[in-house]
Amino acid sequence: MCRWLAYTGNPIQLETVVFRAKHSLIDQSLHSRMGATTTNGDGFGIGWYGQPHEAPFLYRSVSPAWHDRNLREAARAIRSPLFIAHIRAATETPVQETNCHPFRHNRWLFAHNGLIRDFHALRRDLMLSIDPALFGAIEGSTDSEVMFYLALTYGLEQQPVAALERMAGRIEQIAAGHGVENPLNMTVCATDGEQVVAVRYSSEHQSRTLFHSTSFKHLHELYPHDPRISAVGEDAFLVLSEPLVDLHDAWEAIPESTAVVARRGSITQQAFAPRVRS
């Protein structure tokens, strides 16, 4: 369906992971090895942070990522300590710029791979669950953007994991009322420039793939002359749909129904369980 990655660590050029790696995001846009679709050519987006406490920047396009010359130039020019990149394979919604990930609200960015099943039947009730104060900020027509604004409604800016659990719980609650089984399949990422929160969850417990990098300190010791590793620093962290390089001990699969939070070199995992807001 889609492929995405998020990076936090020393400032690096975006092209390091978007273009240069053997199985870079550009390679995955044409030759995904683990996705539901091999080709992800229905647009792309990058969101990145510059100076501390500033809102993130966005560059999104409906062009296939491999075909956009401006993306290559931008990825070479931009250096950032935290960014998200996403390539899209559209399901039931149009190919248009406002449907490209990541989505932005104030300091938060959000990206998603997966779907809400029978979204067309659930869409009205889901959108009515969004805080009216946020409703006017919705620009596109995807299930992913609705998920983002539901999470914001339920407190993403204060308690990210709990808000994502409430978002998932509300989707499953509404789906049950419509007789939709196994409505939610997602790997999602949310960040405010200080922390990266990633979740792997699906109602049927058969989620899309999601990995995170292992200790870069350990990798520095194993591969002291690899410039890809030395540039990012020991506290770097990558979470991504599928590995970028075939490097032993570099990646760890995120378990089913798990949330991962990375913040200033600290990485924690916890069980993820949808909950209905009380």
Rank of each mutant, 00 (worst) to 15 (best):
S207P: 13
E139G: 00
W108F: 15
P227C: 01
P56G: 11
S257N: 15
T209S: 13
G114V: 07
L164A: 06
N40W: 09
A137C: 05
I87S: 00
T39W: 00
V188T: 15
G265C: 07
V276P: 07
G35E: 06
L244W: 00
T214W: 02
P81F: 09
F272S: 02
W108D: 02
D27W: 06
R76V: 05
S266R: 15
I171C: 05
R277A: 09
S213K: 03
N10S: 13
G140A: 03
I46G: 00
W4G: 01
A6S: 14
N113R: 05
E221Q: 14
Y7I: 09
G50H: 04
A168P: 01
K22D: 07
V188P: 00
A175S: 13
V197P: 12
L30H: 08
P224R: 02
Q158A: 14
R277V: 11
V196S: 04
A162S: 14
E252L: 11
Y149C: 08
L58S: 01
F135D: 10
A175Y: 07
F216I: 09
D246N: 15
Q158S: 12
G233N: 06
H23W: 06
P243G: 12
T268M: 05
Q159A: 14
L115G: 00
Q96R: 14
G114C: 10
A273W: 04
H23C: 08
G45A: 10
I84S: 00
D226P: 01
N182K: 10
A262G: 09
A6L: 02
R170Q: 13
A250P: 11
N99R: 03
L126P: 01
L210I: 00
Q195W: 01
K217A: 15
F272I: 03
S257F: 00
I130C: 02
N106S: 12
G50K: 06
E92K: 13
D192Q: 01
A77Y: 03
S144F: 11
S129R: 15
L240N: 04
V196A: 08
R200K: 15
F83V: 02
R79P: 00
A151L: 14
D131L: 05
G140N: 04
R33A: 10
L58H: 06
T268C: 07
F119C: 03
V276C: 12
C189M: 11
H101Y: 10
V180A: 03
L150K: 10
T214S: 14
G114P: 04
H220W: 13
A250E: 05
T37I: 07
I116V: 15
H67G: 02
D246H: 09
R263D: 04
F110D: 04
D235V: 02
H225Y: 14
G169A: 09
S202K: 03
L247D: 11
L164G: 01
L58I: 08
R69V: 13
F44E: 00
I78V: 15
A253T: 13
M1T: 15
F19L: 14
F44G: 00
L184V: 06
I12Y: 09
H53F: 09
F19K: 03
Q173Y: 08
P94M: 08
F135T: 13
E252R: 14
Q206L: 10
V197W: 11
V188Y: 06
L222K: 13
I46Y: 01
L82P: 04
F119A: 06
P183V: 07
N113G: 03
R107N: 14
S207D: 08
I171Y: 07
S141V: 05
G140M: 06
F44W: 15
I267K: 01
D246I: 09
G169I: 08
P102S: 04
